[in-house]
Amino acid sequence: MNVTVARLTARGLLGRRRGLLLLALPVLLLALSVLVRAIAGQDESTASNVLGGLALGTMVPLVGLVAGTGAIGPEIDDGSIIYLLSKPQPRWKIIISKLVVAVGCSVVFAALPTYFAGLILFGTYENLTLGYTIAALIAGVAYSALFLLLGVVSRHAVVWGLMYALLWETVVGQYVPGAQTLSVHQWALSIGEKIASPGVISSSVHLPTAVPLLLVATLGGAWLAASRLTRLTLAGEE
C-alpha cells in the first residue's frame, strides 16, 4: 500500500465527472427507496426486489465498474501512469493501493447506500438489510478487483465490464442457468443468503462453491493486474 498512489487515485476518481456519476447512483437508489416505501409500505418482497435487483444487481456492479476501471484505465490511456511506474516501487504495491481506493469507493457509494436503502425499505427485520449489505460489500470487492484488471489489460475496459455485468450476469444468467455459476452477483447473494433469515434471500450458487470462486476472482484479479502492470509497455508515438 502506497499512500501517494492511493491519494492520486482517489483525487483522479472523485475529482472529475466520474465522482458525480459515483454520487448519482446511490442518491438515485435512496430517492427511489423513499418513494417505494411511501407507496408500497414495508413489504418484504418489494424491498428484496429493490435491494437485490437495483442495489446489488445494478448499482454495485456499476459503481465497481466506474471505480475499478477508473482507478487505472485513464492513466494508462493518457500515459500519465509513467510517473507512477518510473519509480523504485514494486508494481503490486501500485495495484494494491488502487484496489484499496476502488474498494473504498464501493463501500461508500454502493454498500453503505444499500444498507441505508434497506433500512428505509424494510428496517432491520429478518436481517434482510444486513444480508444484502454484506453481499454488496463482498461483491464490491470482487468487482473492483476484476474491473481493475480489465482497466489494466484493455483500452475498452468499460465496454467489457458492462457486457459482463449487464449482459452476462443479468440477461445470459436468466436464460442459461449455468452462467450464474460464474457470476459475482450470485456468489455474493449466496453469502447474503446465509446471513439473512432462511428463505429471505436466495442464490443459485451454493456457499462452498461461491466462497472459493470469490477468492479466486478477487485475489487472482489483483495478482494478474499486478503482473500485467509489471510488463506494461508504452507504445511509441511513431
Partner: peptide, 29 residues
C-alpha cells in the same frame, strides 16, 4: 529508477494537481 530520471514526450500528467503537488508526489513515490 533510483538512478534514472525520465522526461516522457507525452504531455499527460496529473493535470488536476498543482505543480507543487505533482512534483511532491513524484518525490514521495
Amino acid at each position: 529508477y533510483k538512478q534514472i530520471g525520465l522526461v516522457p514526450e507525452r504531455e499527460a500528467m496529473y493535470d488536476f494537481l498543482t505543480g507543487w503537488d505533482f512534483v511532491l508526489a513524484n518525490a514521495e513515490l
